[in-house]
Design a protein around this nucleic acid. Structure first.
Lengths: 202, 202
DNA sequence: AAATATATCGAGGGGGCCTCGACTTAGCAA
DNA sequence: TTGCTAAGTCGAGGCCCCCTCGATATATTT
């Protein structure tokens, strides 16, 4: 991860100031109103014209990406640390919980992220890949410990965490926690005595 | 269910015709563009003014509800039939599959439905309740067979199916199926040998 | 201080949501 | 048939949003 996102060549002082202001207001707006918050309002609150906002962030996703950058780095670092946790299962669940909680702080984010995983042109694509990769190592460790079935991929894990975050957006927190736990449990191998409820019919 | 939705007192012929036209175009538009499709375009395609559309369907949700009515009745009937299926587990999975598949035919529908479950003023509320109730009987039967853990409620089941439908909207069908299966598997009781991966940390 | 690359600005074209008063017409009754 | 009137239809207009682009301003460099 090179510093490929902050300005290549130093920005003019006023530009830098405006960039930061917009970013700060975006964080507030996205948190309060979700990822569909009005960009015109963000510009207004930042005391900047709509044209200036677009000058710095050509698309909504670019703005989102810039806003999430730090926190995603932090999540990836957390995953790294959890690799040394004594219980592979708990490490996995902890990471899923932390990730889901972060995502569901911004209504609509899970949706943007999941769809960016397979869209290489999206500014969010890198972020998704990093998160998937971070999850993969935890997942593999849990699988080695016999806690995860063979056919569950890192992409599956990412999708499940996104789904959990999505569901959390519209359900009481307590239920949201329970549902995430169910989903992670669903990754367990199937044993002889606890047969799967069934295969979906044709 | 009573015929509580079709006109109380007979509609005028032209009104009836327009009502049907709008409904037909809405079905197409929602299927192609998702539940956020433009109402003005639906009116245009139906050859009706925007005012007329609003006359018949005061809100987007009312239009959605009218459009979904039949198919939801069909789903509920399917659940009824599945109650006599020899395998409670397979019955549950089949119903989840059918429901999820239907929902994911309209991008954004899962979102509308899940949020209508707890919003009594929504025109979709009744539909959600019916579906939850239908699922509950199948869930209880599976639980009696030891296939579902005690703490999983019908609302949980409904939320999971919605989450699966949501995920299916943005992921290859094959992966979508797998993820739904994982989620339903996550409802199984936890056995001694297959410990849950873990509890989410604080 | 002048030159110039950088930034900012905001009107304007395109769309969507929804309302409401003016207008039409289906269907009934005389 | 012919009116009459309740029921239905229309669409301009107010408000908001997205995004672009030429005109304008200013930070930095020489």
């Amino acid at each position: 991860m090179s510093a490929a996102n902050m300005p290549q060549r130093r920005m003019r002082a006023d530009a830098r100031r405006n960039y930061e202001r917009v970013l700060a207001e975006a964080e507030v707006a996205f948190r309060e109103r979700g990822t569909e918050a009005s960009l015109e309002e963000i510009a207004r609150r930042a005391g900047v014209s709509i044209g200036t906002l677009y000058g710095h962030f050509p698309t909504r996703q670019a703005l989102l990406e810039a806003m999430l950058h730090e926190s995603i780095d932090r999540l990836v670092a957390t995953a790294e640390e959890l690799l040394t946790h004594p219980s592979p299962g708990e490490a996995l669940a902890r990471w899923a919980g932390a990730t889901g909680a972060h995502m569901s702080a911004y209504r609509g984010l899970a949706s943007s992220l999941l769809s960016s995983l397979k869209d290489e042109s999206s500014p969010l694509h890198r972020a998704c890949q990093q998160m998937t990769a971070a999850g993969e190592r935890l997942l593999d460790r849990a699988r080695s410990a016999g806690l995860v079935r063979a056919e569950a991929s890192a992409a599956d894990m990412f999708a499940l965490v996104n789904a959990a975050a999505w569901v959390r957006e519209q359900v009481p927190a307590e239920q949201g926690d329970r549902l995430l736990a169910f989903m992670i449990d669903g990754l367990r191998p199937v044993t002889a005595e606890t047969r799967r409820p069934a295969d979906p019919g044709p």
